[in-house]
Design a protein around this nucleic acid. Sequence first.
RNA 1: GGUCACUUAGCUCAGUUGGUAGAGCAUACGCUUCACACGCGUAGGGUCACAGGUUCAAGUCCUGUAGUGACCACCA
Length: 915
Amino acid sequence: MEIAKTYEPKQAEEKHYERWETSGCFAPEINQNPDAPAFSIVIPPPNVTGSLHMGHALQHTLMDVLTRRRRMQGFRTLFLPGVDHAGISTQLMVTRELLKNEKKTPQEIGREAFTEKVWAWKAKFGGEITRQIRREGASVDWSREKFTMDEGLSKAVREVFVRLYEEGNIYRGKRIVNWCPHDKTVLSDLEVKEEKRADGKLYYLQYPIVGAERKLTVATTRPETMLGDTAVAVSPTDERYQDLIGKMIALPLTNREIPIIADDYVDAEFGTGAVKITPAHDPNDYEMGERHNLEQLIVMNDDATMNEAAGADFVGLDRYAARQKVVEKFEELGLLEKIDDYEITLPVCERCKTVIEPLLSTQWFVRMDEMRDLALEEMREKHFPRFFPETPNEKVYTTWLENLRDWTISRQLWWGHQIPAWYDANGKVFVAKSLEEAAQQAGTNDLTQDADVLDTWFSSALWAFSTLGWTGEITETEDLKTFYPTDVLVTGRDIIFLWVSRMVMTGLKFVGQRPFDDVIITGTVLDKNGQRMSKMKGNGVDPLVMFDKFGVDATRMTLVSLATGMDVRWNEAQVENYRNFANKIWNAARFCLMNSDGATVNLASLKPEEGASIADRWILSRLNKTVLEVNRALEKYFFHEAVQLLYHFFWDDFCSWYIELVKDEITGGYSSAETEVSSEIAEAVVSEQQAAARTRILTILEQALRLLHPFMPFLTEELWHTLPGTNANLHNAAYSKAAKTIMLADFPTTEESLIDERAEAEMQAVIDLIGKVRNIRAEMNIKPSERIAILVAANADLQKVFGENQAQILKLARATDLKLSEQFDAPKASARTALAGGAEVAIPLEGLIDFAKETDRLEKESAKLTNEAEKLNAQLSNENFVARAPSEKVEEIRTRVFDIEQRTKTLNQTLEALK
RNA sequence: GGUCACUUAGCUCAGUUGGUAGAGCAUACGCUUCACACGCGUAGGGUCACAGGUUCAAGUCCUGUAGUGACCACCA
C-alpha cells in the first residue's frame, strides 16, 4: 500500500468530522456499557455574535483532549455545546444593521418587531461560531446543543428569579449604578473597565458661605455635577473648618442653599479638605447622603444630557458642554480658583468604551450573601473547586467572593430574558413565572411586564444544570443524574467572577451540588509582541487562518503545548513545527505501510517473545513508559508535558531509532544494488520472521496513533483507517457495535512489566556508540560515502549488546567492520574516544587522520571530563555532604566519578600515544 | 494603595517532593542515506534578572532590590 508523500490536512478534516457527527460518535448514547462511568464538560457558551479566536481554540482543544481520552477509555462521555444570547453585543449589532439597512431605530419599530429581527439575525448568522467549533474538531454532542434563550433554559431563569425574589434575595431598589449613556443601560461592576487619562483636570470651585464673606473651595473632576450638589462635607477633625460645620452655602448657578456637614469619609489631606456632595451622581456621595438624609437631586438624563433640574441655562446640554459652561460661569463670577492638570482613571463601558456616568436609578438586584456563603463554605470545607493552576486563581476567587456586593441584574435592553415582574395600574409589583400566575396574584389582567431584561450572565450562571434539562419544575432528568456535576470546566481568567463563581453559587443553591469538580484556568494567548490580541488593535491571529495554513491538528498541538497556565506569545514557527511533526507521523506510517505485506495490526505483538531483540524490548519499554507518563500528565492537566512526551517518543524513539534499527529486517534488507527489484518480488518472499517484525512495528504505530488521537484527531483517524487489521474489535468494549473509528479505540494503558530498564540501558549504550562514531566522522570530516572500521574495547556484557546489534551499528555508523574485544591494539592513526562503562572505541583512519586535529579534539573532551570530575570530587571531599546526603546519592556520585576517571584515563593514554 | 505572577541559550518557552540546566526555532558545517529536505547527521550557544539568607547541596525554598505584567480597591 502506498500513500502520498506529504500529509494534506484539508481532506481528512472535511471527511472525518462529518462522519463522526452523523454516526453519533459524539453522543453519549454511543456507549453501550450500562455501567460505564460518566464524564462531562459543558462548553463555555461563546457569544452568538462572536467568531472564533485563539482563546476559544485553546480552551476547546483542551476540553476536547480530555473528552476524547475519556471516551476512548470507555467513559459515557458528554461534551455539551451551546451559545450565549449575549444581550448587549447582539442588540448593538442588530441595531446597527437596522440603521444601515432600514434607516430605523429600534424604538421606531417597537420591541416586538425588534426582537423578531434579532431572532432572524440569529437564524441567519448565529451559526457561524458553531461551524467554527466543528472545524476545530471538537467532539461535542450537537444533538444536545443549547442556546441560553431556549425555552427550557428560559424557564430555569424565571424559576430561579422567582425563588430568589420570594426569599427576599432579589429586590428592586434605587441605587447608584453604572450607567452607560451610549448603550442606555445599567451595567454591573464587572462590565465596567478602567481607562487612564493623562489629560484630566481638577477644578477648584469657590462656594460662598451664607452670611459670611468667606468662601469654601471644593475640588472636583466633574464640575457639571455641582448643579446637583446638596451639601459640602468636611472632615469632623479638620480644624480649618470647625466653625463652618452646620453653616449654609449659597450654591452658585442655582438658587439653592446647601448645608456644610462633617463626615469621616472626607480626607482632610486631599485637595482642599472640602468635598462637594452629589448624592444622585456619585456612589460615595450617595452613601454620605444616606447618612445625613440629604436630598438626591438628579440633574442628568439617560443620555448624559442635563435635565430641567440642572436649571434653564443647562438643560439639554451634553455633560461635557455643561462642564465647560459651568467652568465659564464660575470664572465670570470670579469663583474659579484654579484648574490643575490631573491624571485620572475613568470608568468606561466594557463594550463601547463610553465613560460611565454613576446615576441614581431604580434597578433589580440580587443579594448575594446566602449564595456567597455557600460557595465559601464549600471552599473552606471541601476545597472546591480545585483550580488548575491553584495559585493565584484560588485566592483570586476566594477574595472576590469575600468582598462580594449585590449584583445589578436588570438591563435596559430588549434582547434577553424579560424580567418576570408585572405591575398593576398602581405600580404594585407581582413577580411570577408567567403572566397568568401574576394575574392570579394581582386579581386582575391589567398588568404590564417590567420592560427590562436580565443580565446575560444571569442565564449563564445556570448553564451547568439548565443545559442538562433543569427547569425548576423539572429538577431530575437522565442527563442531570448522569452528567451533573460535570467533571471539569476550562475557561479564561477574566470570567472567574463573571461566570465560574456564579455557577458555583447557583449550582450549590438550586441543585444542591457543585456544578463541576475542577476548574482549569488557561493563560492568555498574546500576539508576538506580548500584547493582548484585540479586534480594535487588529493584532489578532485568526485560528481559521492557522487551520488553513498548517492544519487543524498542528494548530491544536501548538495550543496544547502552550497550555501551562501562563500567558504565552503566539509564535507561528511553533505551528510550523507541529505541521512538520504531523508530516513526520504521516511518513512513518507511510514507511510501515510500504512494508506491510504479510502484516496486520495485532495486539499480541506488543508483548516481546522469548528471546526478543534489545531493540524490540526497548521500544516496547519506551512505549509503555510513554503511555504511563502521558496518562499521568493528563490526570494532572499538564497538557504541555503530554505533548512533549508524545513528540519525543514518536520522533526520537520511534522514528529516529526504532525504524532505523529494524529497517533492514522490515524491508528485507536488500542492498542498493537490488533496489530495482520490484516490490512484487519482495512481497513474495516475506518470511515469517519478517512478517512478525512488520506486524510489530505496525502495531506499535497503531498504539502511538491512539495516544495521539485526542490531540491530533484528523491525522490519526486518516492513518488508522489505512492500517491493515484495524477494525471495531480494537474499540473499547463499550463501543463494540459502532462502526470502525480510532476515536472509539481503547486508549492505551501501561503494561508495567514491559517497562524494561535493562533494555533501555543497553539500547542507550548502542545509541551512545553510534553517536560517538558519528561525532568522530563529522569532526574528522569523513565523507558519508567513506566506509570505516570500528574497534571497540569493552567488557563481556557490553560486547554482547554491541554484538547483537552489529548490523544496525554498521549501518547507522556507515561502517563496514565492527571488531569487539576486551582490549584492543588500535593503530596509531586512529580516532579514539571513551564510552561509558569503561569501554573505548577506535576508528583506524590510515591516511585520513590529522593528528593535530585529533589531539585538539581529545584535549577538548578530556578537559570537559576533568571539569566535571572536579565538581563531583569537590562534593565528595565535603564531609558534610558525605555525612548528610542520602547514601544512594553519594553512591551515585562515586559511580559517576569512577566512570569519568576511567574515561579520562583512556583518553589520556590515547593522547600520549599520539605524541 | 492592596494582592499576585513573571524575569532560564539569539527568539518562543519547559524545568512540581532542592541533587549532572532541556525542547523547538534560529545559527554553523556536512548530506539526493532506498518513509519524510515539512528531511538526515554533527556542532556551537546559558555565572538560570540582581543582592543576601537557609541547606551538605538552590533555576527550584526564604528575604530584599530592579524591571515587566495581571487583577482588585480608591481616585473630591
